[in-house]
């Protein structure tokens, strides 16, 4: 009976939040396949620890944080592949159809991970600097700096398509 309740509760949570997390992870990773995989894996881990996660103030923040960690871990492992990617071009499945979106996700991928995360949490999720500080464990001053630098870098990249097209700093 208790297990059935847990299943019902988890399923409701999943159905209510999975598209939001997917959207946020897409903005953070710039890759639909990665976003799907990290989101699904994070929900799987949430189910493993559902008793704890369900009691958290914000289970969605837990899933988002874990999904981000999984993505960040993959980037670090894939670091060596980045050079090859720059040489051979981005794989087909990473290119979203809308050209404006291509420019935006490509620009996001060119700014440092921490800045990108802060940008998405603030400008997409709508979290305050204090809330981001709590979720990421970084001081508020650091979050402000990341937001400021991230916005400047994005603005520059979005008005300078050449630098994006020719590659540069990657996650």
């Amino acid at each position: 009976m208790a297990e059935l309740m847990e299943v019902t509760e988890f399923d409701a949570f999943y159905n209510a939040s999975n598209r939001r997390v997917l959207h946020q992870m897409y903005a953070m990773t710039g890759n639909l396949a990665d976003a799907q995989e990290c989101t699904q894996e994070a929900f799987a881990r949430a189910w493993q620890r559902w008793k704890t996660v369900s009691q958290a103030d914000n289970p969605e923040a837990w899933v988002r944080t874990v999904a981000w960690r999984i993505a960040a871990s993959r980037w670090r492992k894939a670091k060596n592949a980045v050079t090859a990617m720059a040489r051979h071009g981005t794989p087909e499945n990473t290119a979203p159809p809308n050209p404006d979106h291509v420019a935006l996700v490509t620009a996001l991928r060119h700014i440092p991970e921490a800045q990108r995360r802060a940008i998405v949490l603030h400008h997409l999720v709508g979290m305050s600097v204090e809330e981001i500080s709590t979720e990421t464990g970084a001081p508020t001053g650091t979050i402000k700096a990341r937001l400021s630098r991230g916005r400047s870098a994005l603005a520059k990249l979005l008005t300078d398509d050449t630098s994006i097209a020719t590659g540069g700093e990657q996650p």
Binding site: L32, P96, N98, H101, V105, L124
Partner: peptide
């Protein structure tokens, strides 16, 4: 608005 519009890719 730009980030939110990425939703259409999904």
């Amino acid at each position: 608005e730009q980030l939110d519009a990425l939703r259409t890719d999904l």
